[in-house]
Each structure stands twice: as C-alpha cells, then as structure tokens.
Amino acid sequence: MKTDSAAFKHTIKVQEPDIDELGHVNNVVYLRWVQEVATAHWNFAAPQQLKEIYTWVVIRHEIDYYSPAFLGDEIIGYTWVGEHQGAKFDRFVKLCRAGNEKVLAEAKTTWCLLDAKTMRPRRIEQDVLSIL
C-alpha cells in the first residue's frame, strides 16, 4: 500500500494503556488508531452542515501488522480514500513511527455513509466526494 501524496496526516502518542503483556502496543489498539485517523480526517475535511447530515460506520477492516510500537513512540497516521460505490467507500490508513517513517501497520477499511437522522445508508454524492 502506497501513501497517497494527498494523504491526511494525524499524530498519535503511544500511551500506557496501549501496551499489552508483551511490552508493545496491542493489535487491537492499531485498529482503534485506524478509526481515530479516519475520524480525524472527516472532522477536519467536513463542514458542520455535512456532519449534521451524514455519519459513517465501518463495515469491514483488513489490517496488516509489520512492526511493533512502544510506550512513548509518536505515530503518524496517513489516510486517503479509494473507490466508492453506492453508499460504500474504501479508506486506506498507514501507521508509521514518526522520525524514521517505519511502517508499523496498514489497513484498508470499508465505510458506509449513513443519513445521520434515519441511520440508513445514503448514496455518496458530490457534496461528500468534493471534500475527500
């Protein structure tokens, strides 16, 4: 997975609760970070009026783990969107150690756009496409 040149960047600091009994970040935490980076991107890019109309839910995660992160590490999460179809959008996240850019994990997630009031799927239209 290549980082898109227009990728959104979000910084994360590894905290004590992220560490498991093996002394490194637990795999479940990486998945939480994937969602955190995606959410940060939406919150940055979407104007308030779109946030009131739409919300997102994950319907699929694929994640590959390459290298551990440790307490005190600073992580840079890169995200960009891929293909969309109907109400679904593929999003990519790459988690790297700040400083040396070592890739720790990569994920492809499929998100579904929902109407924020009805919580029913909504076709992705130009108002959303234009900000991502």
Rank of each mutant, 00 (worst) to 15 (best):
M1K: 10
M1H: 11
K2I: 11
K2P: 08
A6P: 02
A7M: 04
K9H: 12
K9A: 15
H10A: 01
T11G: 11
I12G: 00
K13Q: 11
V14N: 05
V14W: 03
Q15T: 13
Q15M: 15
E16C: 10
P17I: 05
D18G: 02
D18P: 03
E21T: 15
L22G: 11
G23Q: 08
G23W: 06
H24A: 00
N26A: 10
N27D: 13
V28P: 02
V29D: 01
L31P: 00
R32L: 11
R32P: 02
W33I: 01
W33D: 01
W33K: 03
V34Y: 01
V34C: 07
Q35A: 07
E36P: 01
T39G: 11
H41A: 10
F44R: 14
A45C: 11
A46P: 02
P47R: 04
Q49W: 15
L50T: 06
L50A: 10
K51V: 09
E52T: 12
E52N: 14
I53W: 07
Y54L: 12
Y54D: 03
W56K: 03
W56E: 02
V57L: 10
V58K: 06
H61E: 08
H61G: 06
E62H: 14
I63T: 10
Y65W: 08
Y66L: 14
S67A: 15
P68R: 05
A69F: 05
L71Y: 13
L71A: 11
L71I: 07
G72L: 03
E74V: 15
G77A: 09
G77W: 00
Y78S: 08
T79L: 06
W80C: 05
G82T: 09
G82W: 04
H84N: 15
H84D: 10
Q85Y: 13
Q85L: 15
Q85P: 00
G86W: 06
K88A: 04
F89M: 15
D90A: 13
F92V: 03
V93F: 02
L95G: 00
R97W: 06
R97D: 02
N100T: 05
N100K: 11
E101L: 12
K102N: 10
A105F: 00
A105Y: 00
E106R: 07
E106Q: 12
A107G: 03
T110P: 07
T110W: 03
W111V: 06
C112D: 03
L114S: 02
D115C: 02
D115F: 07
A116Y: 02
A116L: 04
A116C: 09
A116I: 02
T118D: 10
T118A: 13
T118H: 05
M119A: 12
R120M: 15
P121A: 09
R122V: 08
R123Y: 10
I124W: 01
I124V: 12
I124D: 01
E125D: 15
Q126N: 13
V128L: 05
L129N: 12
L129C: 10
S130L: 08
S130F: 04
I131N: 09
I131S: 13
L132T: 10
